[in-house]
Design a protein around this nucleic acid. Sequence first.
DNA 1: ACCTGAACACCGTTCAAGT
DNA 2: ACCTGAACACCGTTCAAGT
Lengths: 197, 197
Amino acid sequence: MVRQPAINAQNRTPLSIERIIEAALQIVDGQGLGRLTMRRLGDALEVEAMAIYHHLPRGKEQLLDGLVTHVAAAPADAHGYAGWRDALRGWARAYRDRLLAHAGVLPLLVTRRNPAALATTTASLREILRQGGVPEAGAAVAAHSLLSYVIGHAALEVRGTGPGAAGAAAAAGEPEGPVDWEARFLAGLDLMLSGLT
Amino acid sequence: MVRQPAINAQNRTPLSIERIIEAALQIVDGQGLGRLTMRRLGDALEVEAMAIYHHLPRGKEQLLDGLVTHVAAAPADAHGYAGWRDALRGWARAYRDRLLAHAGVLPLLVTRRNPAALATTTASLREILRQGGVPEAGAAVAAHSLLSYVIGHAALEVRGTGPGAAGAAAAAGEPEGPVDWEARFLAGLDLMLSGLT
DNA sequence: ACCTGAACACCGTTCAAGT
DNA sequence: ACCTGAACACCGTTCAAGT
């Protein structure tokens, strides 16, 4: 008979960076960035908080870097699209969904941390533009512009859809009614893509 | 002879919300958001930290809201520009400068806090577009798109110009050399403005 | 190798007290 | 009205110790 894993002591699956990041993302998505605490994260992993430092020696800094990379590193892929314009549009929609699904990470994406997290994403955008015939210099500009627009729009949307945001906006003399954010995003996206010759 | 203000006891000018916000902004700009502490802010104002709560009953939350409003509420003004396109371009340049000068506040601008802080800014953009002959619905889209682009680009720029960012990007296989952020910003801006009929 | 316990230097905030 | 001092419940992190 095969040895069963011991029931006593440490039979639970050991910690790993992946499990830690996953648990942290769940806390941020569910309770907000402000409630992500090493101690709370330890609780979620059924471990003492200090055990986390064994896997992330740089501590919380490294944890937040991991969250940003996990959310932001999503390269564009032209496969299955009719043309490069469609490919960029498809990527932009998917990337926006991703950012909104993890809105709590958005402030971290804006901070100076983890400068390389967006490198693969921007490189993939430039590549699609280059293959579409956009000259090198223009492709770099367009890739950054597109990414700026998507990130910025997600930021405005998160701000504008917070609890009580509509009421506060109305109180501030904001004349607009409720905003259809997706429609507005797509309209602005086409406005931007149409600028690319 | 006129009574001199007493030298003893409390002759220092009393606290005010303006002085508090100003001191806080100076700490954030000089040392980063992470070092903005009620106790440190108290030190800068030569006051015990707890005195701040007398002027900001909602505490640090209210302080951060104040910072966001102070930095982000900068309406566009068409006066002195040849046309609405020039006015928008001029506003975008000035707004980018403002965001970069207070880069530490950028993460706060992205968070859900203070939903009304951008209302006057977007309203002024819509107004310029409306007066330029852009129809109502298109003006709302264009105003949001423009603001998204400027905020998003500033975010990418702050990320990309942090200490050691170039080295980290190169290590991640980023093929680009040093980026001329201003030139890239202006090129993308024209790309976006040209999309507005 | 992997985790725990106790400890340290900080936080934001409350509350009673001073002037 | 405006500020202080002491206290409370939290933080992130170090470090020696356990298994």
